[in-house]
Amino acid sequence: MQTVNIHEAKTHLSRLIEQAAKGESFVIAKAGRPMVKVVPIDLAEGAVQRTGFMSGHFTTPDDFDRMGSEQIEELFGLGE
């Protein structure tokens, strides 16, 4: 895994990000001491796909858009 110092990372950030996005992780070091590891999001620990992550865990009732309509009508006096 490639290690770059902070100055080099700032100078070549775009190139380094492109490499990381392709799966080539790298470490940024300060005075030779590793500080952070840059990895693509899909490889990061705990990365969660948010869209559709609950798919298949519950269902929506067919009358969802009408649920509670009678109570709402009563509260606002619309049923009279």
Rank of each mutant, 00 (worst) to 15 (best):
Q49P: 00
I28K: 07
I6R: 07
F58P: 03
F26Y: 14
V4L: 08
G23V: 04
G52K: 05
E70W: 03
M54N: 12
E8D: 11
G77T: 01
E45P: 03
R50D: 05
M67G: 00
V36T: 07
E45F: 04
E24R: 03
M67L: 15
S25F: 00
T11P: 00
L43W: 11
S25A: 15
F26K: 05
D63Q: 11
G46H: 07
K10C: 11
G52S: 01
V39R: 01
R66Y: 00
D63S: 11
S69N: 11
E45G: 04
K37Y: 04
D63K: 09
Q71H: 11
G68D: 10
T11D: 10
F64C: 07
T11R: 12
G46V: 06
E73Q: 14
A29D: 13
V4M: 03
F64T: 08
V4Q: 03
Q2S: 09
K37Q: 14
P61C: 12
G77R: 12
E80W: 11
A44E: 01
A9W: 02
L75Q: 13
D42T: 07
V4A: 06
M54F: 12
E45R: 02
P40L: 03
E70Q: 14
H12V: 01
I72Y: 13
M1A: 15
G23W: 07
E73S: 14
T51I: 05
P34V: 08
F64S: 11
K22A: 14
E8L: 09
G77P: 06
E18Q: 13
G56S: 05
L78N: 13
E80T: 14
S14Y: 03
D65I: 08
P34F: 03
G79P: 01
F26S: 01
R15N: 02
E24P: 01
M35S: 11
S14C: 05
G68W: 02
D42V: 08
P34W: 03
A44Q: 00
V39E: 01
A20N: 02
G79E: 10
F76I: 09
V48M: 11
F64K: 06
K22H: 09
F26N: 01
M54C: 10
L78R: 10
